[in-house]
């Protein structure tokens, strides 16, 4: 147990040194990289290591007769989380999310330090000491708080009331609800039931399982089946349609959506927000093919009221592509990202 705690303490110290370095820009925040594809779990894992590290550190300090006061443990841990979210995770997390995380962590710290009466007393003690002001130092602190707290609150109020020139916050609906049906090139498509006519098996029948088995492995960039290469001219059927979709994509879409389909094309950074990142699990992986068909056909201009503030410059592609071309390009997008279109069966 002691060895385990010592290891934990070591991790805790190392972690704190690294984070301190990142805060003061001595160590670049990319020193320990967040590896693409594993980032969400890596963050939680790092967080777990820190918790274990701090537990070990606290244990070791108690063992050597220098226990770290519970009050400062609580405050310190909360400060650590705020700094971790601000300086460790990149790209920067928007303030609204950091505020949510910070509040939840504050609640968690409170739950921890007040989980039993003994700990709660230990935590409260320094506060009570200052309020009671039995010593000269505490008296001084009490007067200092008396002056500082109103100034601090006044400062916050002033900042909150001060007119700002920043652009206002947007609560944008990225995936507005689609209509029940959409009319493209004179034909009406019911979004709930329509299917991609090119997602077919060798017999020419709609077959999602067949197409799912012939895509690029998600996040790996390699083919699920080595011989299922759409760029091979000999391949027909589904793979041929993927190839044709790819050609359309690279002629029309990749300037914005990027050759990796990650929304970072040549022109992408002229827009804010940048175009949709199809490799993100929150975009096409969440949607039915017919949803994509509707969005591609109607473009940013065809977004419903719900899609306010309509921050999309995508052209209505029905004015430039045929229905078949739109279906094929969608087929390619799913093939390339390794995602499967959403179905409801």
């Amino acid at each position: 147990m002691k060895a385990l705690m010592s290891l934990g303490a070591l991790i805790g110290v190392a972690g704190l040194v690294l984070l301190g370095g990142m805060i003061f820009d001595v160590i670049p925040s990319t020193t320990v990289r967040l590896v693409e594809g594993y980032m969400p779990m890596q963050m939680l894992f790092e967080f777990a290591c820190f918790v274990a590290g701090f537990a070990g550190l606290s244990y070791m300090m108690s063992a050597v007769g220098m226990p770290f006061p519970r009050f400062w443990q609580g405050i310190g841990f909360w400060a650590f989380v705020l700094l971790y979210l601000k300086y460790r995770v990149y790209p920067p997390i928007p303030f609204s999310v950091r505020a949510m995380y910070g509040t939840v962590t504050l609640v968690a710290v409170f739950m921890w330090i007040s989980a039993n009466e003994e700990d709660w007393k230990k935590f409260k003690q320094p506060i009570m000491n200052v309020l009671d002001a039995q010593t000269g130092m505490n008296k001084l602190l009490r007067y200092a708080y008396l002056v500082l707290l109103p100034i601090l609150i006044g400062g916050f109020s002033y900042n909150a009331m001060k007119p700002k020139s920043e652009e206002p916050i947007e609560l944008r609906t990225v995936h507005p609800a689609p209509p029940a049906s959409t009319k493209v090139h004179g034909k009406t498509y019911t979004l709930q039931t329509s299917q991609n006519p090119y997602r077919v098996n060798p017999e020419g029948k709609y077959d999602q399982e067949f197409s799912n088995a012939n895509i690029v492995e998600q996040g790996m960039g390699r083919l699920m089946k080595p011989n299922a290469n759409p760029w091979d001219d000999k391949n027909t059927g589904y793979l041929k349609y993927v190839r044709e979709g790819g050609e359309i994509f690279f002629q029309n879409c990749h300037f914005c959506h990027g050759d990796n389909l990650n929304g970072r094309g040549l022109h992408a950074f002229a827009f804010n927000p940048i175009p949709a990142n199809f490799t993100d699990p929150g975009t096409i992986a969440q949607l039915q093919e017919t949803f994509i068909f509707w969005r591609v056909s109607k473009g940013g201009i065809g977004l419903p009221n719900e899609g306010f503030p309509w921050a999309s410059v995508m052209p209505p592609w029905e004015q430039h592509l045929t229905v078949d071309e739109i279906w094929k390009v969608i087929l390619f997008e799913y093939w390339h990202t390794g995602y499967y279109p959403r179905t409801w069966d």
Binding site: P91, P94, E166, E167, I169, E170, P273, I274
Partner: peptide, 13 residues
């Protein structure tokens, strides 16, 4: 929920 500046700094939606 983010400001356009934060959106830009984040590099995508």
């Amino acid at each position: 929920v983010m400001s356009p500046a934060e959106l830009k700094a984040m590099g995508g939606q």
